[in-house]
Amino acid sequence: MKHFIGLVGTNSDHSTNRQLLQFIQSHFREHATIELMEIKSLPVFNKPEDSSVPTDVKEMAEKIEQADGVIISTPEYDHAVPASLMNALNWLSYGIYPFVDKPVMITGASYGTLGSSRAQAHLRQILDAPELKARIMPSSEFLLAHSLQAFNEDNQLVDPEQIEKLEGLFADFVIFVDLVTQLVHAHGSNKKAAENFSWDNL
């Protein structure tokens, strides 16, 4: 059985993205164990000169290293990823590289009709940056629009079409994780590029 991290892409107390990950966690419990990870407590990233990262971040990085993959669910603030998620990813790529070659699936929920489409496109670009270099599942988008109306009181998605779509994507992700383990040829150089990436050695 696979083990995944479900990264909640916001620091908000109430979040339909958290709800979506909780749904995924329980709906696919026979296929994978999923641990939800919060980003709320992290300080604002400020490129500390001694390259130190907070203990919380180190623990998060360790868990991501251990996991087979990461599912990130992002809201959309101002056409982009929330600052709090960008902040978490900045910390998680500062002298530590838990995302390099890590399989990642992106989901997102929004109150309106677009379902965080633009934030997801940004997130793909961000995860492609040299210090992150995640293996993002291609051609897969899960946009949950009108998310306040999307769940019933038992936290189940009410639209069977959405559930079917998510089941398809999740089954693909499990295969994608295995596929990625075969994509070893660039791994060495990816890792090296991330480690060599330095703000100062120019």
Binding site: Y77, D78, A83, S84, M86, N90, I126, D128, E131
Partner: peptide, 18 residues
């Protein structure tokens, strides 16, 4: 540019200002 996008600090400011 941090990780192919703007800094989290700047994004946070723009979120407060919107």
């Amino acid at each position: 540019e941090h990780n192919h996008t703007i800094s989290a600090g700047l994004k946070s400011v723009l979120e407060w200002l919107s």
